[in-house]
Amino acid sequence: MFQLLWILLIGFILGVLAKLILRGPQAIPWWLTMLLGAAGALLGNLIAGWIGVRHTGGIDWIRHFLQIGCAVALVAVVAPAWSNSRTNR
């Protein structure tokens, strides 16, 4: 249970950071921001494991940058699609 709360909290933080890094407004709700951040964290972890930098001595900076990068990419792709789907209704 606590792991799920931790995933959602980190997902929200990564999603907000991704929205701050991107230029312009991203008109997506907070729950989608949280889900995209969590998905970015998962994708970043998978990529870090694939290239062999998931567990290093000290702070895993490369893994964290990959997580943020994946969250930014997901928000950059989903936010315009979300706003287009909302304006077409």
Score class of each variant (00 low, 15 high):
Phe2Val: 00
Gln3Gly: 04
Leu4Met: 05
Leu4Trp: 12
Trp6Ser: 03
Trp6Gln: 05
Ile7Arg: 10
Leu8His: 02
Ile10Met: 12
Ile10Lys: 10
Gly11Leu: 00
Phe12Cys: 01
Leu14Ser: 06
Val16Pro: 00
Val16Glu: 10
Leu17Ala: 13
Lys19Met: 07
Lys19Glu: 03
Lys19Leu: 03
Lys19Tyr: 02
Leu20Glu: 03
Ile21Gly: 01
Ile21Met: 05
Ile21Ala: 13
Leu22Thr: 00
Ala27Thr: 00
Ile28Pro: 11
Pro29Tyr: 13
Trp31Asp: 01
Trp31Val: 00
Thr33Gly: 08
Leu35Glu: 02
Leu36Ile: 00
Gly37Gln: 03
Ala38Glu: 05
Ala41Val: 00
Leu42Asn: 07
Leu42Arg: 12
Leu42Glu: 07
Leu43Glu: 09
Gly44Pro: 08
Asn45Ser: 13
Ile47Gly: 08
Ala48Gln: 12
Ala48Leu: 05
Gly49Met: 10
Ile51Asp: 08
Val53Arg: 10
Val53Gln: 14
His55Gly: 02
Gly57Asn: 15
Gly57Ala: 13
Gly58Asn: 14
Gly58Pro: 00
Ile59Trp: 15
Ile59Leu: 15
Asp60Met: 01
Asp60Trp: 11
Trp61Cys: 02
Ile62Trp: 14
Arg63Phe: 12
Arg63Ala: 15
His64Val: 08
Phe65Ala: 14
Phe65Asn: 07
Phe65Trp: 14
Phe65Arg: 06
Leu66Cys: 11
Gln67Asp: 07
Ile68Arg: 13
Gly69Val: 01
Cys70Ala: 15
Cys70Phe: 14
Val72Pro: 04
Ala73Thr: 07
Ala73Tyr: 09
Leu74Glu: 01
Val75Leu: 05
Val75Lys: 06
Ala76Gln: 08
Ala76Met: 03
Val77Leu: 15
Val77Phe: 15
Val78Ile: 13
Ala79Ile: 01
Pro80Gln: 01
Pro80Ser: 02
Ala81Arg: 10
Ala81Trp: 15
Trp82Met: 09
Asn88Lys: 14
Asn88Asp: 09
